[in-house]
Design a protein around this nucleic acid. Structure first.
Lengths: 354, 354
DNA sequence: CTGAAAGCGCTTACAG
DNA sequence: CTGAAAGCGCTTACAG
């Protein structure tokens, strides 16, 4: 890069002090009593020379970097990609740049990322925590680093977080299936001790209990998050094929639903004729698939906006009082065609198109 | 934030100079002849105190920020979300943080973002350029700022770019339709003078010409990029309903294909019985939809990896010689069920499921 | 083998 | 109304 022009150059060319230049750059002309004539001379030259203050110097001096960090599970996932988009937009509007990164549910990676972000002296952090992140989150609190957790919280730690009521979402989805006549409902989730996934499982189980349906452990499949792709599809396929009594499937998250549809296709199972399907989270596929899939969606826009706005307020110290406040949003249940009223047994299979 | 520990604190506590500490931090112990004893004392204390060098200071001093900027069209789009994920991973592996932002095809926003990124003193930039970005790109070149363009290039400017052969992709997709018996092929694109979209249109038209099919302007629909969502769906619906002679539809990009499927559903048109469909780009919906959609996919992984690796090499000055080199990758055509051999006219409509 | 010191480009008390 | 100067935390010639 060619040498950039500095505040000193501007000052020299105008025969004034760098103090004056600095004041007008930072919009303190009035406050500091810089004459309007001087101020406009400065503005003119800045524009002419294309001067932009060096952010590293500014950051070093002020301790603020006008940068925030976004640490999520997986950037390429529909939910997180949309979250990221909204956070980015809002941040830029407020003069902040955002670093982003995915931890893919690895504690180790998540820890690394937090350290890296802190070293890059971000002013604040939005984090989707992994399960083993307690120490780091506690440390963030001790350091008085502004941050807000999204999608998940860490039990027993008071922090700012924006999550949804996973229990209710799962409870409603399950009740909906029961109401429509399904009683052998498979639950497909991931192996984890993430609170959100526990809540979804609890919602599923309590909905069954309250409807006097026995909870069968063999109706529950848990795959490894690490086993993305073909491996998970095969697990689901095997699970479905060896559990012919199942009349409905509940996918506990976004990408499992996508894999699930693929697995059912491979297994030659027709939705909803052979088996009904519901899933947590929404995406284009669920909406447009034939049949469209019944879901409990997270209010993406609300989550993202509340998170970034709260973070910005924390950074600017507007709110000591809002500190340590969890926000729990309601999931949005959308009933579609994958979970209709169950028809009486053994109806002939309809002719399949193409 | 509580005050962070500095290199000075480490030096003082060990009764050595900050120079020595700096050398060992930067792995120059050997080179500078620091005694192993001293070096390990330093390492031990750094670990104990949790010291991390202040990046702003380092950046100010060295002029390098270990940060790159990623400016794309839309973070929430399948293609770009995946691109971002890979770039991020690779960048972190190499010790770089990445800023990201979406311009949504607005020249104004794109310009803004480039300026902001430059001010944040990124070491390099990966950009999906908008059509009016010529001046800015030229300036980047003049400034010797390392950058690589992806997805699109700017005609008449020699730069590093990674794109795909859009002409071939569109030509092959169209030829495939023609070979399968379709001759009234609608082309749905966006209003733009992006070179990539021009190329796709050229591929479509030349494939028709070479097959002696007349190009009809009324078979071409162009919507505004700004009209995301319902508005575009309605345009496509209207287009299809007022052009009953069409027997196939070519969607020039990802999200148009998604809207197109929705529009066809609303119009009550069955794919492929009433109308065949092909699209540029791939995604979960196209793969799993019934019928699955024939596409020309971009090799996402290759594009992203080549872009970030080239950028890293440019930043580290490894390659003056690679400078100004365009790379054109081949799209991957995947024939699926939305474009089968056309059956003779007026076959009875199959019974539709659910 | 190690240290004192300059300087990167800003902001901000302090002084007049 | 404006300026001289300290200092943010590093890196790196230079000196010994």
């Amino acid at each position: 890069m060619t040498k950039k022009i500095s505040i000193k150059d501007i000052a020299k060319e105008l025969n004034i002090s760098i103090t004056t230049v600095s004041f007008v750059i930072n919009g303190k002309s009035k406050e500091m009593g810089i004459s309007p004539a001087t101020a406009s001379k400065v503005h003119a030259l800045i524009k002419k020379r294309g001067f932009n203050p060096n952010s590293a110097a500014r950051s070093l001096r002020t301790g603020k970097s006008k940068t925030i960090g976004l640490i999520i599970e997986d950037m390429s996932n529909y939910f997180f990609a949309h979250i990221a988009k909204i956070i980015e937009l809002e941040a830029y509007k407020n003069g902040y740049n955002v670093f982003f990164s995915s931890h893919e549910n690895s504690d180790h990676t998540a820890r690394d990322l937090i350290v890296k972000m802190k070293n890059s002296s971000v002013d604040g952090l939005i984090i989707t925590p992994t399960r083993g992140l307690k120490t780091e989150v506690l440390e963030l609190k001790k350091d008085k680093m502004p941050f807000v957790l999204i999608d998940r919280m860490i039990p027993d730690i008071e922090t700012n977080y924006i999550i949804i009521d996973n229990y209710i979402g799962a409870y409603d989805l399950t009740s909906h299936l029961v109401k429509n006549g399904y009683s052998n409902i498979g639950f497909i989730s991931i192996v984890t001790d993430l609170s959100m996934m526990d809540e979804r499982e609890r919602g599923y189980k309590e909905a069954l209990e309250n409807n006097n349906i026995k909870i069968e452990e063999k109706n529950i499949l848990k795959v490894l998050f690490e086993d993305q792709g073909e491996k998970t599809i095969q697990s689901i396929k095997t699970f479905v094929e060896s559990n012919h009594h199942l009349d409905a499937l509940f996918f506990a998250t976004n990408y499992l639903g996508v894999y699930g549809i693929e697995a059912l296709q491979q297994a030659g199972k027709l939705i909803p004729h052979d088996i009904a399907v519901v899933s947590f989270d929404d995406n284009d596929l669920f909406r447009l698939f034939t049949p469209s899939i019944t879901i409990a969606a997270q209010p993406i826009k609300e989550i993202a906006e509340q998170a970034i706005n709260l973070l910005l307020r924390l950074i600017n110290d507007d709110v000591k009082s809002v500190d340590e406040t969890g926000t729990v949003l309601k999931p949005i249940m959308v009933v579609r065609n994958s979970s209709p009223k169950k028809v009486s047994e053994k109806k002939p299979k309809p002719i399949q198109v193409a």
